[in-house]
Simulated assay, not measured.
Amino acid sequence: MPVPAPNLYPPFNTIRLSHVELGVTDLQRSRAFYVDTLGLQVTEEDASTIYLRAMEERGHHCIILKQTDKAGARYLGFKVYDEDNLDRAAAFFKARGLPVDWVDSPHITRAFRTRDPQGIPLEFYARMDRLPPIHQQYALYRGVKPLRIDHFNCFSPDVDAAVAFWNEIGFRVTEYTEDADTGRLWATWLHRKGGVHDIAFTNGAGPRLHHTAFWVPTPLNIIDLLDLMSTTGWLANIERGPGRHGISNAFFLYIRDPDGHRIELYCSDYQTVDPDHEPIRWDLKDPQRQTLWGSPAPRSWFEEGSLFAGTAPVQSTLAASPIIAP
């Protein structure tokens, strides 16, 4: 199935990804990981919930940690241009028979929850509480010095179908992996904000959240984090990297939080704002697809992910396999 032509005039204007809520089983252990180790900033907390933001962000939060009995990804948040676009988004999902539930989402003016056709729980909003800037408060920088949330990656049982839907609402493909034997999509990267991606889809049992990524200043910050994690009790939480992706050209590191939620630290991708930007194709068996330097990912990277609340994953319809590290 070919990559669809970009929809430059979608039914509503999504600006970017915004936030994620994760269910965690030990809130204080997760705080030690996200705050004391990664360096995210606490904007509000109580006995059951911690709101966090990164150093360049003015919105109240980019990640919510919620104490739960069972770990999982509760929903992915996206910001639309204004209240009119929020209403248009709600009408779009409703017209396609997808749920639209207006919710009281803390620190957000108006928001609705829905799901995409594969079952990924989503939240859309236009206005979040704004906070004073902290990007020049250098005494606050610690850990990997995270600047902003960058993207989500989700396992999808049918990447072609996922791309068709997200393309309809204006997410544009920047790069993709094709299975040469079937001509089907094995993975895709789609954006709204002008980077390589706001959301990506990887073939596998799903939907599940593969990872949430944070943009960091330089590769040296990632090296510093590795030194910190390896000497403060987090060695076993380092999963993959550091390295440079072939796809996106980004320098990366993948780590796991105390509940197994995967986090990517990420920098050095490229700009994609031109409306006639042409997607880059990769073959599934290209050894430089995963890592420019040729190192394959471990099996856990292809098989393990966070379950979405209220959604039972189904097996992929594409059996093709990438190169996997022994």
Rank of each mutant, 00 (worst) to 15 (best):
R31G: 07
H211G: 06
D276G: 00
G260Q: 06
L284K: 02
A90K: 08
W282N: 05
L284C: 08
A161V: 10
T212C: 14
V100I: 13
Q136G: 04
E239K: 05
V163M: 10
A47R: 10
D283F: 11
T202A: 13
P157E: 00
T109R: 11
S295V: 13
Q67F: 02
E123I: 14
L228N: 06
P6Y: 01
A164D: 13
S18L: 04
H210V: 05
H211T: 07
L22Y: 09
H151P: 04
M229R: 02
S105G: 00
T317H: 03
T25P: 06
P242E: 08
W186G: 01
G23D: 06
R88G: 00
V159Y: 03
V273E: 12
I64D: 00
T188P: 01
K66N: 09
R208A: 13
D160H: 04
D283T: 06
W301M: 13
F214Y: 15
W166S: 00
R148N: 12
Q118F: 03
S268N: 13
S156M: 10
P275W: 06
D286S: 11
E57R: 00
F93C: 07
E21R: 14
F93A: 07
N221I: 02
L147C: 12
H19Q: 08
R281W: 03
E57N: 02
E303N: 09
A250K: 00
G143D: 08
R16M: 10
S321G: 01
A250H: 00
T232N: 11
G204Y: 05
K193R: 13
D150Q: 14
Y254I: 08
R110M: 06
Q271P: 02
P6Q: 03
S300I: 13
E168D: 14
I247F: 15
P2S: 12
F214A: 02
A312V: 15
H277L: 08
M229T: 04
I108P: 01
I324N: 01
P117I: 12
Y9F: 14
H135W: 13
D227N: 13
R256E: 12
N13I: 08
S30D: 11
F308Y: 15
D274L: 14
H261P: 04
E178F: 01
N13A: 09
L22I: 13
P322W: 01
D224I: 01
G305D: 12
D179R: 01
D259R: 03
V3G: 03
E168W: 03
F152K: 00
F201N: 00
A91W: 12
R172I: 02
E56M: 14
D69T: 12
A319K: 14
D36L: 03
R88W: 06
P298T: 07
E264F: 13
S230H: 03
A205V: 06
C154S: 09
P157C: 09
F155C: 04
I324A: 01
V3R: 02
P275R: 06
P207E: 05
A297N: 11
A187L: 07
G233D: 11
L17R: 02
L284V: 05
E175I: 10
F93K: 04
A32K: 14
D101V: 15
L265V: 15
T14I: 15
G183K: 05
D116I: 11
